[in-house]
Simulated assay, not measured.
Amino acid sequence: MKKKQWHGWGPGDPAEQHYLVHPRALAGGGDIRHVGEFLRASGWRDHSKEDGPLAMMSPDRTVRIAYDPHGRPGGWAINGAADGLNNSWSAHLGRETPVEIVAGLTDALTLPRSAHAPNVWAPLEEQRWHARVEGEHYTAASPDGTAWMQYRQSPDGSARWWSGAKDSRGTAWTATFTPTTPMHLVQAFAAALASPDPVMRPRGHVPLSAEVRTWSVSVTPSQLSAWQQARITAARAATWARNSAQSARPRTAARLRTAAGAAKTRR
């Protein structure tokens, strides 16, 4: 995937049939460029091999994101190194985890943390998920029962976050997070999981599931490219603003120190 860019198409493209899929948790994996292009536009380094699995590294080299559909167990592997605030952490999301839900977590890695304390259950409660206590486990399930989020505690005292989606045929995908995973990232994942908005899939890429509802829509390749480009442009703008603010701080501090020194000299 290295150095590959999202290319648009010219005007007058014939419309193509796509589907809006609900619930999003059962929409299938989707196009991984939804995740990778956003990270690249946010300044992440692309270490993917030519035509190989996706591999991205954060600008500060503390977080690595990889997607490998052929490995075992396969899917998304996200690993964070220990820093001054957190121990090392990791998350694994199955290969059929919708990219829009994956992006809930990965997009949050590019954003400054909120000043508010994170609450994983808040976005689930807002969407009227059903919560219950099962022994040492605390679980919230979607109203239709197709998705869940669980905080699991084992008899040995270890704990982890566990999520996933299922239909009448069985489990579609699961996601696990180590207990050291920063809570604001787990919350961002939960918010994307619980979102009631459908996601779009091209014809032939909608899972065959009795629990899935679809609406047929006609879109042109140019429209699809424009929507993706808007997401990339937003990432670039946020990155530019963040980098500009960071580069301005030392100069501002230096000016303040110089002004303070001049004031003392005048005294």
Rank of each mutant, 00 (worst) to 15 (best):
M1N: 01
M1K: 01
Q5A: 14
W9K: 10
G10Q: 11
P14V: 13
E16F: 06
E16T: 10
Q17T: 12
Y19C: 05
V21R: 00
R33Y: 06
F38M: 15
R40E: 14
D46I: 08
K49I: 06
G52Q: 08
M57K: 07
M57G: 06
V63K: 06
R64C: 05
R64I: 11
I65Q: 03
I65V: 15
I65N: 05
A66M: 09
Y67V: 04
G71E: 05
G75C: 06
A77L: 14
I78E: 07
N79G: 02
A81I: 01
G84H: 03
L85C: 10
W89G: 07
S90T: 01
A91H: 06
A91P: 00
H92E: 15
L93R: 13
P98N: 02
E100K: 08
T106K: 02
A108L: 06
L111Q: 15
P112S: 02
R113I: 09
A115W: 13
P118G: 13
N119H: 10
L124M: 13
R128Y: 08
Y138R: 12
A141V: 15
A141R: 10
P143S: 03
D144G: 09
G145I: 07
T146L: 11
T146C: 15
W148K: 14
W148V: 03
Y151W: 08
Q153Y: 11
P155T: 11
D156L: 02
G157R: 02
W161M: 02
W162M: 12
D167L: 02
G170Y: 01
A175E: 01
P179W: 00
T181S: 07
P182I: 13
M183P: 00
F189R: 09
A192F: 09
L193K: 01
A194S: 14
P198C: 12
R201Y: 04
P202Q: 12
V206C: 07
A210V: 08
A210T: 07
V219Y: 12
S225M: 02
W227G: 05
W227P: 00
A230I: 08
I232P: 00
T233M: 09
A235L: 07
A235Y: 07
N243C: 03
S244I: 01
A248V: 00
T252Q: 01
A254R: 10
L256V: 15
G261F: 15
A263I: 09
A263K: 12
A263R: 13
